[in-house]
Amino acid sequence: MSADQEQRTIRCLVAKVGLDGHDRGAHVIARAFRDAGFEVIYSGLHRAPEEIVQAAVQEDVDVLGISILSGAHNTLVPKVIEGLKEYDAFDDTLVLVGGIIPDEDKEELLELGVAEVFGPGTPMEETVEFVEANAPER
């Protein structure tokens, strides 16, 4: 990590998209990010993809972590990525997906531009280190 990266605070939006009402994992990762020194914004539950995009753009986040357990990841995540591209914010935003994602869907999400997919039981340190190593430089 360069000296410039050490001095700036990584801004993260932890987002719950769609009708998924289970947010314990989102709270756990938000706390881990905060404890790592990141600035964390939490979207709250039941957000539409457009709301997530608006929040990411307005808050000028470096990292967008989408927490999804509903099984609608193949529908909702592409809408979020499409929205970020419409605002020219995709290239400046590290997009992560966390939750229950079947292996056969993981590759498709990565091809769409998701930087990484984190499943249940991923150590918090692994996720934090991934963000520190891959957050876009501003």
Rank of each mutant, 00 (worst) to 15 (best):
V117Q: 06
I41T: 09
I29K: 00
G71A: 08
R11M: 03
G83I: 10
L84G: 01
F90H: 07
V63P: 09
Q7D: 15
V117L: 07
Q5M: 14
D60T: 14
T75R: 08
I68G: 13
D23I: 05
V97D: 05
G119Q: 15
A15L: 02
E107A: 15
P102T: 08
V61S: 03
Q58K: 13
D92L: 00
I10R: 05
D92A: 04
S67H: 01
A89F: 05
F118H: 05
D88N: 15
E39G: 01
I66N: 10
K16Q: 14
L69P: 07
D60K: 15
R8L: 13
F90V: 00
D91K: 14
D91W: 03
T9V: 15
F33C: 07
P123M: 01
T9R: 15
P120T: 06
E39I: 00
L96D: 09
V97H: 00
D62R: 01
G18L: 06
F130Q: 06
V17Y: 00
R31C: 08
P49C: 07
Q7F: 05
S2A: 10
Q5V: 09
F38L: 13
R34E: 15
P49L: 06
F33W: 03
D92R: 14
V117C: 10
D60P: 06
V57L: 07
V61Q: 09
